[in-house]
Design a protein around this nucleic acid. Sequence first.
DNA 1: AATTTATGATTGGTAAACCAAATCTTCATT
DNA 2: AATGAAGATTTGGTTTACCAATCATAAATT
Lengths: 236, 236
Amino acid sequence: MKIEVTTKPENFNIQKNIISQIRDLINFKNLEPGDKLPSERMLSEKFKVSRNVVRDAIQKLELYGLLKSRPQSGTFIANIGITALNGMVEDILRLDEPDFKSLVETRILLELKTARLAALRRTEEDLDQISKALKAHKEKILNGEEAVQEDLLFHLAIAKASGNSSMNTFMLIITPEIITNFEKYHVCDVGQAHSRIEEHQAIFDAIKNRSPQLAKQKMKEHFRELYKYCYNIEIN
Amino acid sequence: MKIEVTTKPENFNIQKNIISQIRDLINFKNLEPGDKLPSERMLSEKFKVSRNVVRDAIQKLELYGLLKSRPQSGTFIANIGITALNGMVEDILRLDEPDFKSLVETRILLELKTARLAALRRTEEDLDQISKALKAHKEKILNGEEAVQEDLLFHLAIAKASGNSSMNTFMLIITPEIITNFEKYHVCDVGQAHSRIEEHQAIFDAIKNRSPQLAKQKMKEHFRELYKYCYNIEIN
DNA sequence: AATTTATGATTGGTAAACCAAATCTTCATT
DNA sequence: AATGAAGATTTGGTTTACCAATCATAAATT
C-alpha cells in the first residue's frame, strides 16, 4: 500500500488562480487604491466558482493587508498603490513553504531581539510569567522528563515581554513547527538538559536586571549550544 | 455626522470565544496530540453557532500550526503537546494588534538580516530582480515623483533574495502597513529622496559583491537616516 | 481464518438560500 | 432648489443544503 503525501496542489492552485484573477481584474478595470472591488457575488459569477472560494481568496489577501472588506459595504483595495500591489501579489503567489533551516534562522533572529527588548521593557507581571515558565521547565527536567514544550513556553514568555506585538505573533507562528521538529529529531535529549536550565536562568537574570546586552549574549550562547551541529545557519 | 471607527469587537470576540471553547473541549475530553477533533458539524451544534464560524476558528488555529484539517477525514491536533497548545492558545487570544512602532522595529530587524543573507546567497536572477527594482525606484525619483512603492519593492526583492521563506513572508505581512503610514505621514518627502538612491545603490553593490557585513552596514545607515526622528525604536 | 471487496456512514469542501446592516434612489417637504 | 425621510437595492455575513472523497464495518471469496 502506497501512501500519498501530496499537498493537494489543486486546492492551493485554485485559490492562487482566483487571487491572480482578482489582480488581473484590478489592473484591467484600472481600479485604484481605495476603490471598491466588485461584490463577492459578481466575482464568483465571473470566475465560475462559489462565493466561498472567492471569500477565501479575499481573506488571504486581507491577511497580507492588500484588501479590506467591510460588512454590508464592500471589499476595498488598500492604499498601497497599484505598483506595490502587483509586486506583492506576485511575491505572495510565488512564496515557498518555509523549510526548517529558514524557521530556525528566523527564530534565532527574533529571539536575540526579543531577549534584548524584554530586558528593556519587561513589567513586573512579565517577569512573573517568565519566572513561572522557567520554574515549570526546571521541574520537568529535574524530574527526568522531556520538556520541549516548557522550554518553548519560556521563550514565548520572553517574546511577550518584549512588548513588540509583531515579533510576538511571528514567534507564535514559528513555534509549532520548531517543536515538532525538535521532538522528531530528539534535539533536546536529556543529557544536555541540565545545562539548558542554567542557560535559561542566566537569560532570566539578565532580563530581571534589565541588562539588554547580557540578555542577548546569554540567548546567543544558548542557541550556540542548541544548534552547534547546524553550521550553515546564520547566528549573527 | 460622526463616523464610528470601531473595530467591531463582537466579531473577533465570537471567534475568540469559539477558539477558547475548542481548547476547553480538548482539555476536558483529554484529547492528545494527533487525535481527531469532533467533526465541524458536532462542534457547531455543541457551540450553538454555524459551521462556518467553527471553520473560521479552526482556520485561524491552523494558521498558527495548532490544528491541521484534512479533507474528508477530519481536523487533527498538532503534535506539539497539550501544555504547549494551552500556552499558545492563551497567547493567541491575548495578542494585541501591532502598533506602528512594533512594525518598524520588526522591519528593521528583518531587513538587516535579509540584506546580510542576500549578500551571501543571492543568485544571478535575484540580483537581476533587485537591479530592476533599484532602477524603477531611481527613475521615479529622478522624475520628481513620489516612489514609496518602488522603494519598498526594492526591499522586498532583497527579502526574496535572502533565501529565507519565513522572513520573506513576514516582510510581506508588514509592508502594506508600513507603506500606508509612510504615505500618511509623508516620511519619504522629495528632499531626502536623492540620498535614498545612493543608499539603495550602496546596498545593492554590497549584495552584488557578496559582502554581507557591508550590506548590513549600508542597510543600517539607510534606516538611521529614515527613522532618525523615532529615537525610541531599537535599531540594534 | 485471512484477505479482499463492497457498502453505507462520516467528513471537510462547495454551493445555494437567507439575513441584517449599509447605501443609494426617490420623492415629499420646506 | 435644498434638504430630509422613506423605501428599495446592494452588500458582506450567516445559515442551510448538497457533494465527493474517505473510512469503518461487514460480507464474500479464497
